[in-house]
Amino acid sequence: MERSNVTLVLEFILLGFGDLPNYQHLLFGIFLVIYLCILIGNGLLMVITKTNPALQTPMYFFLGHFSFLEICYTSVTFPRMLKDLWTQKGNIPFLSCAMQICFLYILGAAECLLLAVMAYDRYVAICKPLYYPLIMNHRVCVQLVIASWITGTPVQIGLTYQIFSLNFCGPNKLNHIFCDAPPLLEVACGDTYQKELSVHFTALFFVMIPFLLISVSYIKILATILKLPTTSRKSKAFSTCSSHLMVVGLFYGSASIVYLRPKSSHSVKSDKVFSLFYTIVTPMLNPLIYSLRNKDVIAAIRKILQRCCDS
């Protein structure tokens, strides 16, 4: 009886920055500082939006939850990446890889939806200011946040199951910094066309539909702002939206390039760079963008720092 030589993959090897062997510990130091900045910056935003009386509005309620989401999102990939850089070993068990992808996609979908919710909040505040307290009451805000967290969960769990139901019979080396669908589909055995379509369709749904909602919201916001009588009111309305637009541009731009561009145009180095943008750079810049461009946030941070110095 003939036996087919099939190797069962029990773990994957993340190559990460293996092409830079002499800089592993330097990269570890750089990324450790970045991770601490993400934790401290977003954690500080969470604290001030929760405790400062001047920031008890729907906009800052969503910002606090968005900061918490950013911490969770980076914590899915960052600790293991730091471990791999320090030990210079990228071994990750099969189940751990599946869990990493599942949580990464669930939190990524939640981030897309929450960004759309934040755009809707700005739309109501600027276009329907008289009805704003009625429409965006606390109950509605809580429901929108919960919907952002749970809407994508069943779909992303199903997508993860589809990806890991493929046959992985070797090789098991992923030329990436964390487990993700594109490098996994490259090392899978057999026909992966349908799985690739599922990945692209899911990304299209959770990236493009919220992006379209954001675009429609800001088109209406822009039309309303242009009708405002004074320049000061126009600049104030623009300033409340500019921070959100910058975060949207960074996150959606890099994520769209990775997941929505054709397979033929993919390159390993560019995928790593853009993956760093939406998993590291955006969460790191989020507190800076919102604090440097917001007088209320700056005032709240100064109060906290003053209390710390006094104590």
Rank of each mutant, 00 (worst) to 15 (best):
residue 12 F to P: 04
residue 23 Y to F: 13
residue 25 H to N: 09
residue 25 H to L: 14
residue 28 F to E: 00
residue 40 I to W: 14
residue 42 N to W: 04
residue 43 G to A: 09
residue 43 G to P: 09
residue 43 G to K: 06
residue 45 L to S: 10
residue 48 I to W: 05
residue 54 A to Q: 15
residue 54 A to I: 02
residue 55 L to W: 01
residue 59 M to S: 15
residue 63 L to H: 12
residue 66 F to W: 03
residue 68 F to H: 04
residue 69 L to W: 01
residue 74 T to H: 08
residue 76 V to L: 06
residue 77 T to V: 10
residue 79 P to Y: 02
residue 79 P to V: 04
residue 83 K to W: 14
residue 87 T to I: 06
residue 102 C to T: 11
residue 105 Y to S: 10
residue 112 C to G: 00
residue 114 L to Q: 00
residue 115 L to S: 02
residue 117 V to T: 02
residue 117 V to D: 00
residue 119 A to S: 14
residue 127 C to S: 12
residue 130 L to D: 12
residue 134 L to E: 15
residue 134 L to I: 14
residue 141 C to Q: 13
residue 142 V to D: 01
residue 142 V to E: 00
residue 147 A to W: 03
residue 152 G to P: 07
residue 155 V to Q: 06
residue 156 Q to G: 02
residue 168 F to L: 05
residue 186 E to V: 13
residue 187 V to N: 04
residue 189 C to A: 15
residue 191 D to C: 11
residue 199 V to C: 09
residue 203 A to I: 04
residue 206 F to K: 02
residue 209 I to Q: 02
residue 209 I to N: 01
residue 210 P to I: 01
residue 212 L to P: 06
residue 214 I to Y: 04
residue 215 S to G: 14
residue 219 I to P: 04
residue 220 K to G: 03
residue 222 L to C: 09
residue 231 T to Q: 14
residue 235 S to V: 12
residue 236 K to W: 10
residue 239 S to Q: 13
residue 242 S to L: 08
residue 246 M to C: 10
residue 250 L to I: 09
residue 256 S to F: 07
residue 257 I to D: 03
residue 258 V to S: 02
residue 264 S to T: 10
residue 276 L to V: 13
residue 278 Y to R: 04
residue 279 T to F: 06
residue 283 P to Q: 01
residue 284 M to W: 09
residue 286 N to M: 15
residue 289 I to F: 03
residue 289 I to S: 00
residue 296 D to A: 10
residue 299 A to Y: 08
residue 300 A to D: 05
residue 301 I to S: 03
residue 301 I to A: 01
residue 302 R to V: 08
